[in-house]
């Protein structure tokens, strides 16, 4: 860890000013940021502590149009919220299966969606090759140990996997993310546009402009949100990242899929929405054959690198399981 300045922001304007003028990095729960600073992976000159903005960005509000989650809501708070438990079970599922209770008590939702990859070669600076950490240096994971790394959305420059859970629910449910820029203007963009594919610039992980602050997530209501779940498959029963996970939200009419929202985790470079799988299901009765057809579509573009050769198969099975379980859910009217 290197010396750094710590600025305490007590208003949104102060936060974006610090972030813009001092090239500051926002600090909320710190569960990823401080970890990577101690490992010398990142060396921010200035941290801008935004925890005092919880009055502005720390609420959960639900109405008929959907639910809005403030960026400074802690993961543990959201997981316990009655509207989420009742109307958006997939969000609760994705939250409580992440990390440990201690980490979920600290981690903010805004920080959580920006979680960095767990790729060993990214997190250990003694490896010279990592295009994400040192652009142009190469990718040690290709040809190295890549069991946990991505098979969807990867490039020849980076196969890092996005490790989070919650963001997969947001992307599948068509959420929007609220942003505040340094000049005080606010905008909303589709959550699906927040993260960037690695391509040949894996060091650029999001489309945020410098100083921009995530303020909230807006999840639209829909007839599929109550029939929704998150199926996470991992080596350990708890406190483990997904080897493969699936978000499924279904609107069924007489057993036929009227609408499907599908996300994938643990297998992709970014939070991943499986549009092809959604299209494959729509209008069909949800049976095992339909689920397998959708899963095939979801992983049609998978690229593997040895250690993660099993992931497309595990990912397909995980999605099939999630689809069949969601179809069988007892759902409130």
């Amino acid at each position: 860890m290197r010396p750094f300045a710590l600025e305490m922001a007590d208003t949104p304007a102060a936060a974006t000013n610090y972030a813009t003028q001092s090239a500051g990095t926002y600090l909320a729960g710190g569960t990823v940021l401080l970890d990577l600073m101690k490992l010398d992976v990142i060396e921010p000159q200035t941290l801008v502590d935004i925890n005092a903005l919880a009055d502005t960005y720390g609420a959960i509000e639900a109405d008929d149009d959907g639910i809005t989650l403030g960026a400074l809501v802690r993961m543990a708070e959201a997981e316990r919220h009655p509207a989420i438990r009742r109307d958006y079970p997939v969000i609760r599922d994705a939250l409580w299966q992440a990390a440990s209770p201690q980490l979920r008590n600290m981690a903010s939702l805004g920080g959580n969606v920006l979680q960095r990859t767990r790729c060993s070669y990214f997190r250990d600076v003694s490896w010279p090759e990592c295009n994400k950490r040192a652009p142009g240096s190469g990718c040690a994971a290709i040809g190295g140990n890549n069991r946990r790394l991505a098979v969807l959305g990867v490039s020849d420059h980076c196969i890092a996997s996005y490790p989070g859970d919650f963001a997969n629910a947001l992307v599948a449910l068509g959420a929007e993310v609220g942003l505040r820029s340094a000049d005080g203007s606010e905008r909303r963009v589709p959550f699906e546009d927040l993260h960037r594919l690695p391509g040949d610039t894996p060091e650029m992980e999001t489309n945020l402009v410098p100083g921009e602050l995530i303020t909230a997530f807006h999840v639209p209501a829909g007839p599929w949100t109550r029939r929704s779940l998150y199926r996470k498959v991992r080596d350990r029963t708890s406190y483990d990242f997904a080897l493969a996970s699936a978000v499924v939200a279904l609107h069924l009419e007489d057993g036929v899929v009227a609408a499907a929202r599908i996300g994938l985790g643990g297998v992709a470079a970014t939070p991943w929405r499986a549009h092809e799988a959604e299209a494959a299901l729509t209008g069909r009765p949800l049976d095992e054959a339909a689920a397998e057809h959708a899963a095939e579509a979801a992983f049609a573009g998978a690229v593997t690198h040895g250690g993660n050769d099993f992931k497309p198969e595990l990912g397909r099975r995980t999605l099939v399981r999630a689809l069949l379980e969601a179809a069988a859910m007892e759902v409130l009217p």
Binding site: S120, Y121, D124, G144, R236, T237
Partner: peptide
Amino acid sequence: TNDNIAEYHIAV
């Protein structure tokens, strides 16, 4: 490469 207890798994 997994020289930490986040990636070197022991039973929880």
